[in-house]
Design a protein around this nucleic acid. Structure first.
Lengths: 232, 232
DNA sequence: TTTCTAATTTTGGTATACCATATCTCCCAA
DNA sequence: TTGGGAGATATGGTATACCAAAATTAGAAA
């Protein structure tokens, strides 16, 4: 039965335990994010609260809270009768979210040009340099994580908490899709070039240039979505 | 004791009951939004789950879910020890959120110019006309609600669900602050002028003009925030 | 065999109990 | 009078029980 699938797939990671700083539900949300992004919980899969809670060794209460959190992030969705399943967004839905993300990142870039400290800009430029130097050595996941860190640190440097929070939401929602499309190594050269443009705009604190290059960078990612779709 | 304050303030509205379509927790979230925006639950006020649940005639479970929802919207915040209180954002925090909202609305305006149907644009223009005709008759709350409807319908006309959802979040978070600053009737003339500009850009489907006027409209609102602060 | 219906099982929503910890109170010692 | 600490209380986190509704299954009738 389905219950066995869930149990066997997840139990080997050991039980979830509450951290000193994070509650069980927060830990659970984090764990679920990981399971979804790694597709151990594949898109469209049903998530019965009881079974999954039992599989992770916790009760329904924190599991429910975690599911709500993930639902808001867009990683989990509910049917008309409130049954939860792993989100399986269409390409169009991903494109819609990416469009918003592009605007958020463009705003972040503009603000960063005005607000980021020299130290923060240096750190961002260092990340860019790291990606250039390690591009041949990096695995897909390493390359991608550094890519994400590059973007996140620009957003963080705006010190705009609302922007930081909303950006994190969109990142979580789009993580899997972006990872899929970044796997194709042919894209790395273009990614690196665009990151260089972004870094240059930031170092010279050229806000309008920044908004422009940032927007076209994300638009490339949007285009890659469709390409990826056609390949599969 | 504090419990009595909460009880006496809220019980007269009758108990919360689950709607045919919405769960108790969703109803509760809606009710809490109303209580917070009307300042029956004033900024900074403590919200002990038990007392408030009891005051609304429900158990802690749906109250907790509602509080989580409101926390994500930014209407409720948690202390270091997880106690919830009504959010009391500083002017700077409001300005940060407004900055993001401005970008979202500018994006919405641009997309609407390209995507909205003629019927949707007509409906938006009608809302604009209604505000012009009724500006002298409208109470502050009526004027403001129509104002919000005008903006929301532009966002809705983009048919971009991610944008619609995120915009709704920011609207909820900023509702009270925006209402405060829109109360000053002197602002109505400028609001109407800017709405007219927005409507014109939309009718002529001039996306770049739209982005520009929308952005300056929200920037006016940001400025009003500070003014409001100085007056009190 | 197929289809419709009734019984059964599954599932999410809500209430409640219990626990650990945070917070508050009050009293004693300096 | 003040500071600190022990005891009492309040509060949030989690587990569990129960219920109504949804989903599934089984069986009977055609």
């Amino acid at each position: 039965m389905a219950k066995q699938n869930i149990l066997s797939a997840l139990m080997n990671d050991g039980p979830i335990i509450a951290n000193e700083h994070r509650s069980l539900s927060a830990e659970t949300a984090e764990k679920l994010r990981e399971l979804i992004l790694l597709e151990k919980l594949p898109p469209g899969m049903h998530i019965p609260e009881r079974d999954l809670a039992e599989a992770l060794g916790i009760s329904r209460t924190p599991m429910r809270e975690a599911l709500r959190t993930l639902a808001i992030e867009g990683l989990v969705e509910f049917t008309a009768t409130r049954r939860s399943r792993v989100a399986n967004p269409s390409i169009d839905e991903l494109r819609e979210s990416m469009t918003v993300l592009a605007t958020l990142e463009a705003l972040g870039g503009e603000l960063a040009c005005a607000i980021a400290t020299d130290r923060e800009i240096t750190a961002i430029a260092d990340l860019n340099q790291k990606m250039i130097e390690c591009t041949d050595k990096f695995s897909a996941i390493n390359f991608f994580n550094t890519d994400m860190a590059f973007h996140s640190s620009i957003i963080t440097s705006t010190h705009n908490q609302a922007l930081i929070d909303t950006h994190r939401q969109y990142n979580a929602k789009l993580w899997r899709a972006r990872f899929m499309s970044s796997k194709r190594k042919q894209g790395r050269a273009k990614t690196l070039q665009q990151h260089q443009d972004i870094t240059n705009a930031l170092v010279s604190r050229n806000a309008s240039k920044m908004a422009q290059v940032m927007r076209s960078h994300i638009e490339t990612a949007i285009d890659n979505l469709s390409i990826q779709q056609n390949e599969t």
